[in-house]
Each structure stands twice: as structure tokens, then as C-alpha cells.
Simulated scan of single mutants.
Amino acid sequence: MEQVLRPIYQERASQPNTLGVILVEKHEEKSNVTDTFDTVLLIIVKEADTPVFTKHYLYEDNKVALHTVTEKLLRKWLLIGSNKKVVDWIFFGKILFDRNEFLHKLKIELQEFPFNGRKIKTGIQFSKLIRRYLEGKEYFDKGSYLDAYNHVVDSLHHLGRLSIIDSGLYPEVTVWGQVKKIEPAIYKLYEELVTSHEPIEKRLELLFLASEFLIHSRTQDGARHIIEVMKKKEAWTIQELHDHSELVNYSVDLEVFVEYLVDKGFILIEPVIAKSEMIFHRHYKVNVDALL
């Protein structure tokens, strides 16, 4: 297949804007790492008008997908974990073109997972965990057990990814294989949730109790990144937090996360008088007495 696709990727490799080309082939019939395609060509470019551009090809009975992605979008995917298959493509795909060892350096970067990258990714994963846990608890209290179950499964996935990140590794697509080795206690919780014959209400009740302890024990690390950002000035409006270049990746989970940290005493509310003396703006600042 590489020989067949050579004219396609060589044309792009000759362009100075192209940083690297990766070939990923499906080796197992039921594997979905290539999104049902037989072959995937991933082309990383420095910049483009469209951050991701996709073409599909057909060769005899083989389906081929070509994705052209900007470096900026690729790094965003890697940071927030929104396109998990890309990690496997980078680690296990065949490098066909590598300008100035861009892909080689990227793989080393992912393997070593720099501390600052871990810190940001921990904060993002923790904020997602908080949202899913709180929403799941709300459904549970209302008696909507199937909706609660769905949220608990997601929250356990985020807990699992946090344990992998804490160990200095990068979460792969098959995250539970990693969690089983790194954090057996979380793996056991997940296993009990999905395989236990206990009534769903009982399973959820036990999981919420266990998750509460695990979340509490990780709050300090999970809050480290946002607290370090907020220490750079005295007080923040919520919009200023949304607009910050490092916090923008928290997206829709940011406000729930901030409220959680207010509740836990890491962030304090500073009322600032508005136009009406009866209404105050709600500003946020770090509680310096909360040691991180």
C-alpha cells in the first residue's frame, strides 16, 4: 500500500510547509484504530487555512483516509485528549517523511511527557472528572440510575487517565490496560461497576463513596495548574479566566471546576460592587492559606 500511496504523500512531502507524514495500516480485522479504514495517512503541516482537511481514496477493495492537520491542532488534541487515536498513530505508525526530525522529537516529547505538560493535562482531566462526578451524583439523587451510571463510567475513565498522567506516561487508546498495571484500585472499581451482579443502585452508591475519596486525594494536584495561573494577579473575573491562553482548554468544564475549588476553599470569592449597590460582581482569587 505504501508504494501505491507514494505519489500522494510525496507531493505533499515536497512542500516546505509539511512537517511529517505517517502511515497507519489496520492489521486486525476488528481493529478500529484506523476508524474502519484499511490505511490512514496523517500529514502534519505547519499551518493551513483549514486546521484539518480530509480526503478519502479507494484502491481495489481498500479504503484509505488522508488527514492533513496543522501542528497547532495536533498539539491541542494531544493536550486535551480529544482525539485519542492520534496518540497511537504517532507512536505506532510508520514515519514516511520527517522534516528536521519533527516526528522523532514529538515521540520523545510524548514518551518523556514534560512536567508542565503533565500539569496542564492533569488540570484539564481533573476538571472533566469533577463535572462528570457531580452530574452523576445529581442523577443518582434523583433516582435516574442509568444516567448516573453513564456519568460514573466517564468519571472513572478520567480517574484512570489521571493515574496514568501521574505516573509520567501518556494515556493511550487502551487506557484500562495501562490503569490495571499502574492503579489496580481504580481498575477494580471500574471492573466492579461493569461486571458486578449487585443492583445498579447499590453499585453506584459504593462507587460514589469510593470516588469521593479518590477525588479528594487528587484535588491538590488537580488544582495546581489553575491556581498557579491565578496567582499571577490578585483577582479574576470569570471571563478573564475563560480568556486566559492556558485555561481556554478547560472549555465548558472551567466554571464547574472553579465552583468546586471555591467549595473546597482553594479559591475565594471577592465581591466587587456593580452599578447597583444591591448587586456585586463575583471576582475570584487564590486562597493563599490553602497550601498547594
Rank of each mutant, 00 (worst) to 15 (best):
K202C: 07
R203F: 10
R203D: 06
L204V: 04
L204C: 08
L204E: 03
L206K: 15
L206M: 12
L207I: 04
F208V: 03
S211K: 08
S211D: 11
S211P: 03
E212P: 02
F213T: 07
F213S: 09
L214E: 03
L214I: 00
I215R: 00
H216Y: 04
H216Q: 09
R218L: 02
R218Y: 02
R218A: 01
D221P: 03
D221A: 06
G222L: 01
G222M: 00
G222P: 02
A223S: 12
R224C: 00
R224L: 00
R224H: 04
H225M: 11
I227E: 01
I227F: 11
E228C: 12
V229S: 05
M230D: 00
M230V: 01
K231Q: 09
E234T: 04
A235I: 10
T237N: 13
T237F: 14
I238L: 14
E240P: 04
H242K: 12
H242I: 11
H242Y: 15
D243E: 12
D243F: 11
D243K: 11
H244E: 09
H244R: 06
S245G: 09
S245P: 15
L247M: 10
L247Q: 05
V248M: 05
N249L: 13
Y250N: 04
S251C: 14
V252R: 15
V252W: 15
D253H: 11
L254F: 07
V256Y: 08
F257V: 02
V258L: 11
V258K: 09
E259P: 02
E259Q: 14
